[in-house]
Amino acid sequence: MTSDAPEDEPEHIVLHARDVEFDWTRMDLHWIPGDPFATHTINVLHLLLPEGERWFVKVFKEALPYIRDERLREDVLGFIGQEAMHAEAHAGVLDHMDAHGLDPSPYVSQIAWMFRRLLGDRGLTGAKAESWLMTRLALVSGIEHMTAVLGQWVLDAEALDRAGADPVMLDLLRWHGAEEVEHRAVAFDLFMHVDGDYRRRALAMVVSTGALFALWVRGVRFLMAADPVTKGRLKPRWRDILRTGRQGTTPNLWRLARSVPEYFKPRFHPSQVGSTAKAVAYLAVSPAARAAEH
């Protein structure tokens, strides 16, 4: 943590899960009106995150016995609760897709295999289990850099408001994005605490961003093909992501790509990117987060 941050950039936030609920009954399948491509590009999150964040929770629970610092332990416990809530909130959107005729399970079950089998605990013991845990913590740390970048993007993405995106979906994305920004240092700090090997962290980043990118492309293709309204007539093209990235209704591909090298700096720390002030300010107005505080 930096101690010379400006006075209005809050630090050392005590992380806590928020008991949010979202009502999807009034939302359209294409919740960015008239733009199935942008809708589904963001919808890939709902396919990846429930299983992905359940996996984060499992991996972090395995890491608890390695933590020798009370404050980091509290951060990790706060992180676990937030991730658990994210997973279930996104899973609720899967039911909404299904109810509108888009069955997400072929894709989600692939993701489930990846997180539960390929990236599961593999029944290892001893030194092998420990080293596999360190690998997975390094992967989580890399993914969390990207989720923090995406979180900051959605907090700043006024183009989504202008495009008339569904307000409940925007609240889910921004509540989630704000908590990602709020806890963006935890996975990195945990990896540095239990392992800290630069080569492991860098190698894991290459794998996790590469896999994330490929899964995203596959997810958009899957959703566009399975969409019951466009019935697969609209094929996603590369120029679509350039268009929506320019408009601001999806992340700008080039800006995303530029955020990857930051992570490879030897002195990188997540507090160097993103704005906690913006995150806590959103959490203080988020309808879901506010309804959760009673």
Binding site: M1, H12, R68, D69, E70, R71, L72, R73, E74, K128, S131, W132, M134, T135, A138, F188, D189, L190, F191, M192, H193, V194, D195, G196, D197, Y198, R199, R200, L203, A204, V207
Partner: peptide, 22 residues
Amino acid sequence: LQPVMARLGGAKYPDGGASGAG
């Protein structure tokens, strides 16, 4: 990847990542 990662481990920074505020 895993055998490569396993060989890299060992450079432990016991005080890294923790602010000490705990």
